[in-house]
Structure formats: structure tokens, C-alpha cells
């Protein structure tokens, strides 16, 4: 990997020597990563490889033992408005008394600042984001009445409304139906077409080559990172997943169909 200066504007995300540990056990170990702007990147790796941890550590959600992350050359505190985040769907209580539109507007709270209430402009922005994920007619629906795929799209709309330059999504495809998955992929690819950077924690190796143009294989350390065609190789998969043969076969099948 060429050594790129973290302050270069073409690097959307620059991670340097990032180490995260729980008790003494390392979860991420001296991770270096550069993600160029405008790619749609999957983060893959076996269970416990630190995929979610990577996103959370980069976004300052959990303490780091060492290292730093820069967004377009700036630390997170200054780059917050450039970053959108889609947490795992299961991380919240969907029985919370609020409406779809309200959840989407939460994406704008950070920009609103203290003491200001969301108004007409925020409402319109949220409705626009809901149209993009094809949920506009459910705007006033209570969130507990949504299906899993709809919940995921609401979270996506909440990130869209942030109008960020770089998006982090934690397993947006987990347990959604095929229609929703296609819809979400469409949105992600539209984002990339607008020049945005999208980083997705992903599980399904078979769809990697179809959906993503950039991939990072993670197993506590970075195993490989780069354009999908060059990086998503059986050799790298074996290094990331070790002897888990079934995964390997899926991976190779995916590569075969992708080529």
C-alpha cells in the first residue's frame, strides 16, 4: 500500500496505528487503513474480527488504546458534519414512542445545536430523505409498526439527512428481505455516484463483488485492503478466515460468479 499522507484531501478516511483492547485482549491491533474518497467499501472478516469495533473506535464511541483516525485530513471533532452513521438496527428499542419522521429528523439534531427545535426546514429535509428510501408514505407511522427492512431504511434515511461526505454503516443488510437489500444497494450506489464515500460492515461474501468496489479484510489486524478485484482473492480470504472451509468455498464461488 502506498504511504499516503493523512492530510491529503483525496483520502476520505485515514486510520493510523489504531489499537483497541478489551481488558488485555486485543480487538483491533495496530490497524493502518486508507480509504480513498468516492468508494463503496465493505469491511469483512470472521466473527470477532473487530469490524463493528473499527467503526466505533473511528467514531470515538469507544476508547482507543492507541492511534488516531482522520476524516479528509481532520480529526473527528472537526469533521463531524462530514460523517454519517448507521448503527446496527438491533441497538435501539423500536417500541420507543416516536414516529418515522421524528427518527429521521434526529439526524439533524447535531447540526441544530443546543436549545433549537427542529422546524419546517428540518421536516422537509427529513421527508426528502424518506422519499429517497421510498418510505415517504410511512412518515407518520409509529416506528414499532415497521418491518425489519423498513426499520433499516429509516436508519438509512436518518443518515442521508445528515448530508455527509463519508458514511459508516454497521450491517445494514442484516436480516432484511431481498427487496430491501436491493433497494439499499441502490441507495448506496447512488451515494457513491454523488462522490460520497460509504463504508459498510458486511457479512455476505457472495455479494461483495456485485456491490462493492473496495474491500477491507479484517481479522484483528488488517489482512488486506484495496480495490475489490485485486483484494478479494482466495489467498487473502484464507488469511482472514483461516481454515474455515465453508466460508472459503462461498468466497471462491462469489469470486467465480463475479468474474
Amino acid at each position: 500500500m502506498p504511504s499516503q499522507n493523512g492530510s491529503s484531501p483525496t483520502v476520505a478516511l485515514h486510520v493510523e496505528d489504531l489499537t483497541v483492547a478489551y481488558q488485555r485482549k486485543p480487538v483491533l491491533w495496530d490497524v493502518d487503513l486508507d480509504v480513498p474518497a468516492g468508494v463503496l467499501m465493505a469491511v469483512i472478516g470472521p466473527n470477532g474480527a473487530g469490524k463493528t469495533t473499527l467503526i466505533k473506535a473511528v467514531l470515538n464511541l469507544i476508547p482507543r488504546a492507541a492511534g488516531r483516525a482522520l476524516f479528509f485530513g481532520q480529526p473527528y471533532e472537526q469533521a463531524r458534519s462530514l460523517v454519517g452513521y448507521v448503527p446496527q438496527r438491533g441497538s435501539v428499542d423500536w417500541d420507543f414512542p416516536t414516529s418515522v419522521l421524528d427518527v429521521v429528523m434526529m439526524g439533524l439534531y447535531g447540526r441544530l445545536g443546543w436549545f433549537r427545535r427542529p422546524g419546517r426546514r428540518e421536516r422537509e429535509a427529513a421527508l426528502h430523505a424518506l422519499e429517497q428510501v421510498a418510505l415517504a408514505d410511512l412518515a407518520h407511522r409509529q416506528i414499532s409498526q415497521l418491518s425489519g427492512g423498513q426499520q433499516q431504511r429509516v436508519f438509512l434515511a436518518r443518515a442521508l439527512v445528515q448530508d455527509a461526505q463519508i458514511y459508516f454503516m454497521d450491517e445494514p443488510f442484516a436480516a432484511v428481505d431481498a427487496v430491501t437489500e436491493r433497494a439499499i444497494v441502490g441507495i448506496l450506489q447512488a451515494l457513491r455516484a454523488q462522490g460520497k464515500t460509504v463504508i459498510v460492515v458486511h457479512h455476505d461474501l457472495q455479494t461483495i463483488t456485485d456491490y462493492f468496489d473496495w474491500v477491507t479484510l479484517l481479522n484483528v489486524e488488517v489482512v488486506a485492503s484495496g480495490p475489490t478485484a485485486a483484494t478479494f482473492t482466495p489467498e487473502n480470504l484464507r488469511r482472514a478466515y483461516g481454515g474455515r472451509v465453508s466460508f472459503m468455498e462461498h468466497g471462491q464461488a462469489a469470486i467465480a460468479t463475479g468474474d
Binding site: 466505533k56 467514531l59 470515538n60 464511541l61 471533532e77 463531524r80 460523517v83 452513521y85 448503527p87 441497538s91 435501539v92 428499542d93 420507543f96 416516536t98 427518527v103 434526529m106 439534531y109 447535531g110 441544530l112 443546543w114 436549545f115 427545535r117 427542529p118 436518518r158
Partner: peptide, 22 residues
């Protein structure tokens, strides 16, 4: 009332609130 929207946000989705700098 002053912190209504913040309280709502941390009650619903504390991680998203943290990521947004609250």
C-alpha cells in the same frame, strides 16, 4: 424542556447521539 430533543435522542439511540457529538 431546554434539553428535550437531546434527552429524546439519548433515550432512543445513545450511540447515534454520541457519534453526533452530544
Amino acid at each position: 424542556l431546554a434539553f428535550w430533543k437531546e434527552f429524546k435522542l439519548i433515550t432512543f439511540d445513545v450511540e447515534f447521539a454520541a457519534a453526533n457529538g452530544f
